[in-house]
Design a protein around this nucleic acid. Structure first.
Lengths: 125, 125
DNA sequence: ATAGCAGTTGGAGTGAACTCCAAGTCAAGT
DNA sequence: ACTTGACTTGGAGTTCACTCCAACTGCTAT
């Protein structure tokens, strides 16, 4: 697959795909005889994974660390597991906070709806 | 309350508090005769709100817009409500995605745990 | 063989959200 | 009167994560 195909398929810009490769967030991609990137299905799965994790707020730093461990083979299994566990925890914490904020927004909107029904009321920020 | 008191209480750096005021994310804070900021309880509530929303991913841009509307009085009630509603929606979308990612991490960790029990196994990234 | 287009590189530029700094002010304690 | 320490300002610097650019290469179709 060419870079533009992957870009469309994964909805990530070609620049970002090159950037991810450059900083070691995905492994080096095979090239055609002409020097163009030729992504495999496996590459795509990895890219999808990275996209998903980035989207959830995992830093490039952390994901790079994960793949660096990966490159060092199976003796890093435990370290990788622990890294994932740690990220899982902090994701869960973020999620809880965001759920609280969602509730707060819901409440605030309901207060606005009441104010909008009874004309002439102002609210505190 | 002095800036350092609020900073401690809200766990936001004094620099950030000044920055939020400068960009219009919180209203201008009263000053003592000597020109020092003197935060009111109301100021604190607003700061807490901003912190909470920022933490959930709302941009400074959006929060500024909200407070700008606020300053224009009750004729902007509806606009403010709609802005909150929109942010609520996008927060909910983010939350769902992150929940999916959490599940994915859980699964991945469980796969690692299996691999760690049966020695000698390697995994795909 | 030449135009056109997708791809390549290294490196510079961008935007968001802080964070830090220097130089100065002010009130309180010795 | 002087030191100390918290505070002030405007503006520069930083970090993160891209995003863009210029100059170049190499297929493909005319």
């Amino acid at each position: 697959m060419t870079i533009s195909e992957v870009s469309k398929k994964c909805n990530i810009s070609a620049d970002t795909l090159r950037y991810y490769e450059k900083v070691g967030l995905i492994s080096f991609v095979n090239r055609t005889s002409g020097g163009l990137r030729d992504y495999s299905e496996e590459d795509c799965r990895q890219i999808e994974f990275v996209k998903c994790m980035r989207n959830a707020g995992l830093s490039i730093e952390v994901l790079k660390k994960y793949f660096d461990l990966f490159k060092r083979g199976k003796r890093t299994l435990k370290a990788r597991r622990d890294l994932l566990e740690q990220e899982r925890k902090s994701l869960q914490t973020r999620l809880k906070e965001m759920q609280e904020t969602l509730k707060r927004l819901d409440y605030k909107i309901s207060v606005y709806d009441k104010a909008l029904l009874s004309e002439d009321k102002e609210l505190k920020f």
